[in-house]
Design a protein around this nucleic acid. Sequence first.
DNA 1: AAAAAAT
Length: 614
Amino acid sequence: MNSAAPAVNWNSRNTSFPRADAWGGSRSEMGYSTPQRSGWSDRASSQGDRWNSGYRGGRYSNYGGRGGGLDEFSRRGEDGYGSWREGLHKIAPKNLHIERDLFGLPDDPDRQHTGINFEKYDDIPVEASGNDVPEGVSDFTSPPLDSHLLCNIELARYTTPTPVQKYSIPIVANGRDLMACAQTGSGKTGGFLFPILSELFKHGPSPPPPEQPGYTRGMSRSRKAYPVGLILAPTRELASQIYEEARKFAYRSWVRPCVVYGGADISAQIRQIDRGCDLLTATPGRLVDLIERGRVSLSQTRYLVLDEADRMLDMGFEPQIRRIVEQEDMPGVNDRQTLMFSATFPRDIQILARDFLKDYVFLSVGRVGSTSENITQKIEYVEEEDKRSVLLDILHSQPDSDRGLTLIFVETKRSADTLSVYLIQSNFPATSIHGDRSQRERERALDSFRTGRTPIMVATAVAARGLDIPNVTHVINYDLPTDIDDYVHRIGRTGRAGNIGLSTAFFNRSNKGVVRDLIELLKEANQEIPSWLETVAKETQSYGSRGSSRGGGRGSRGGNRDHRRFGGSSSERGGYGSSNEFGYYGGGYSSGNGGGYGGGNYGNANGNYKQSWW
DNA sequence: AAAAAAT
């Protein structure tokens, strides 16, 4: 076939649906009648062999390192990585050591939750809108998923796609972009890893970039990594968590996952990416650093994922993200597939979606196991000076038998330290995590908490979102956050995986700023509302209303609703009433490329909408 | 006001 530049071929896949296949190769098994367009895979098969054998043949790829022994495996080609040769996916042999490391033992209680499945999927509201939204899938099957990916999904003991996965699988398989409003716990990591890895398994690596002949030249020259997939995440812990999942699902495949983030030795990370870096998970700052050092190029990136996009903007990452996406060598919006995940969909995220995505499918998905059902929320009136003793009372009254984890949120790093010291002095097995601790300390704290060695952890906002820690049975808001969204995220650390969770919040006068939102939330979740709390709310007439406190700017619960206008189809599933119009768009953005914002005149920002799944 | 993130 004609050898157009990869970008052109890549581009072509977005021109029609079912898509024309940029990779070539038979796709009849997917039911898409596809004219055989090639480019990528032809080149991959002719040049990819050298690429693969030189670059990732496995001789010096001992990466994956947990302890020794892997060198030995890698010499034998048993390091858990396969390869792509002559247009075919060569799956590596099974390696029980790696398998156990990645997936745990079948009866390991620590791992039970990772692949837990829920029968209540049907209750979860899902709204999908956009042009030609692909039909959701109801099972993990091949097609549309790659059969080797199915093996890994099975090893991870996932049996049924979560709602976000149901849609993301066909959306990505059809070459579409995705904007998903979904929480951690909705299975969103799988939601982007499954379809992306599946496509990568089916189609192999990108052709080696022309400006980099160094891949055949041995190791003397500093190499550049050309990840095909890039995942950006706001915090180091989240990045590392995504990476661990990526390792599972990339097991035995040609795809080598990598992770880079700050606070860790950069030369070790460079060595890691030198061993092969196909699917890179990164925090923005460290990635920019590596790009500046010429160690990473995004010229071959065809899948871009922004996880927790709202949080990344909250944390001021927008300039770095825009630099990475728009000002480096990443293919443009039409030449890549972009998936954005965000808990909320406020104005600045809408703008980001407009700039980074093309004709995207908008998905709004509730959490698996909604807060209202699974989490009992208690609000206690506790004065500042009584907090410690009340906390001790609570901890003493918790039966040791339940072996659950207790996560305590405080507002400042300093109080995280002092409180954890106090707890330890009071003979409670506690640890703490916050941003002033070294990365090593953070990781150790998290690990010791996860494994139950210290079943109590005091945390700042660093642990509020994104982290998936199974078995947290109690979340204590020692200090309530000022933003109700943070509260929601915090209590969302419990009640996961279909389990029952308990949340206790200490409330006093200093928290009256959130009292209205809090009551609203409790009502929505069918929780008991203490009468004193209602009293406080009445006394706090003038402020506390959502709209005013946010000044119409970045309202963080911006409503998970697609603000675009469609002439065409839109499908709705589940419990979103279509009656409550709300949003932040008064004016409207002239649509840049397809499906922009038609200046819908939505109401003001004080909308009383609710997400039914909080 | 605090937290997070590149050094």
